[in-house]
Design a binder for these strands. Sequence first.
DNA 1: ATGAAAGCGCTAACAG
DNA 2: CTGTTAGCGCTTTCAT
Lengths: 333, 333
Amino acid sequence: MSVTIKDVAKMAGVSISTVSRVINNSKPVSNDIRVRVTEIIEATNYVPNPIARSLVLKKSNFIGVIVPDISNYKIGEILNGIEEIGKMYDYDILLCNSYGELKDEIKYINLLINKQVAGILFVSWNLKQEAVDIITKSNIPSVYVSKNAKDFDVFSVGIDHERAGYDVGNYLISKKNEDIIFMSPDHTSQTINSLIIDGVRRAFKESGRVFEENKLKYIKADTISAYEFIMDYIKSGQELPDAFFATNDDMAAGVINALCDNNIDVPKTVSVVGYDNTRIANIIRPTLTTVEQPLYDIGAISIRILIKKVEGFEMKEKNITLPHKIIERQSSI
Amino acid sequence: MSVTIKDVAKMAGVSISTVSRVINNSKPVSNDIRVRVTEIIEATNYVPNPIARSLVLKKSNFIGVIVPDISNYKIGEILNGIEEIGKMYDYDILLCNSYGELKDEIKYINLLINKQVAGILFVSWNLKQEAVDIITKSNIPSVYVSKNAKDFDVFSVGIDHERAGYDVGNYLISKKNEDIIFMSPDHTSQTINSLIIDGVRRAFKESGRVFEENKLKYIKADTISAYEFIMDYIKSGQELPDAFFATNDDMAAGVINALCDNNIDVPKTVSVVGYDNTRIANIIRPTLTTVEQPLYDIGAISIRILIKKVEGFEMKEKNITLPHKIIERQSSI
DNA sequence: ATGAAAGCGCTAACAG
DNA sequence: CTGTTAGCGCTTTCAT
């Protein structure tokens, strides 16, 4: 059915080795033969069978990408970068969705190793030693995207969440907010959220403030939960703080909605700051001050590094930190 | 390095064909041998090399998925369904992002054919004959997800946008909205948007109303453009309609924001209805009445059908239409 | 510079 | 039921 190297060889009146040589430029071939073979390749639309090639080379041009949730906005942006740059360098993306479960992460790592992917790009909410170990042992080049990747001896790309938290802390302080309430979905260490809060703590410390632990509230990471938290807060009759800082935009949106539903002026009475700069930040009223991460670039750079590693370049820098940015909008003053 | 079928055969003291037979259950094998081989396979952690298998079978267990935009919310949800069900049946997803460009769609189709994927799942905003032709000619099983897939002789999964538009039309009419303005991003035929509007037209016709073409406004499909359209509309002093229907939630959000910024009560003065039921619909105030599509299911069912085709089942129904639903929220009354 | 031949790991006749 | 053998399409020694 489709044309093979044999067909090309026959048509050109040469051996298949010669055809292989002109395809891969692996050994000198006399000029007239090279031209003839090339012509035939073009005429027949011949494309080498990548599977056969993989079999003998023991290496595919697949890059296995494991992500924790395809439909997540942030992951989607990162994947856009990965896919675009990957294709640019002629690598194909083998996509695995782990749903953030270590069990599935490991399952997919093994699957990718078995498929002899050229490289593994591992995106995780929370990197675990076990996953790193399996990948490392396989000797397959790998790059990690995870907020805690720097805790491991691996190549990684990301932003400095502690620093971002620090920046938000300083921003809030500079705006003369005395009483600030922090909303974060969890208190286990090593999550993005706790890194952000760590940064805030540092900002507080540096400006001689005390970070009161009871100002840190653990709320589920969605709009509804944040909304209800604020409703309860108001109902309880406690005094409002000068500002709320939620570690993701969804929560911040819930805060704004609850405040507005109680006719509390945002930002005049209370400022609200989010994190992630999702589409919602621009749509909600008042629009949301938040922290932007270069998601597309995280994807693009991580795969670029991975491909360099795959192709044998020595990389010096192991951890690439990309810049974040506070986007100031209407919700803070 | 890794253990092959040869190693297993040697260890079991049988031929490689026998090992192959127990792996694939392709031919009867005596029980004791089967047990012995199985034990060795487990002990050695042997996994057949999928590349070698693909080479001889001329067929991989990859399913090529071409999507128009990974980071798009709707695509992400569909991909979730595709990935999850695909993995469940042991197929791997080869992801290609076409950015909706026919040129790239074709490039990736050819790439997937060359990779000998087992099947192609083609997701497109707007299916073109040329793409269909190439896939069809390759004889690779395929399933399409595109609002205009039904215009071609292919297997497809989706919702009936015309019918959804019809339902929205009837919904709006039943709510006693006399004057309605429709906002849609384009007027080229065969887009989702025009299908929706076609449905509205039918609803109008059936209830004896005239669909006035000047009530249909072509606006760019983003929040800002819709916002500005409404601002201009109000500034121009024209009378407000009873309702706005935008063919996506982002636009509807812009409408709501503009209306609210002008102190126009939604829904008491004007109702607003969107389309897609994105996260924004629940976050914006007032929350948005909109049309929900079963995105995850579209992905899940389309790949399920594709896999059945790949595995040789005869499918009778070519076009699967999944149910949509109007989600009534605060923005309409 | 070129060709013949071996072999990557596996499946599928074919023979027994 | 089991083993032998011939490839799948390609790369890569090893000769020439």
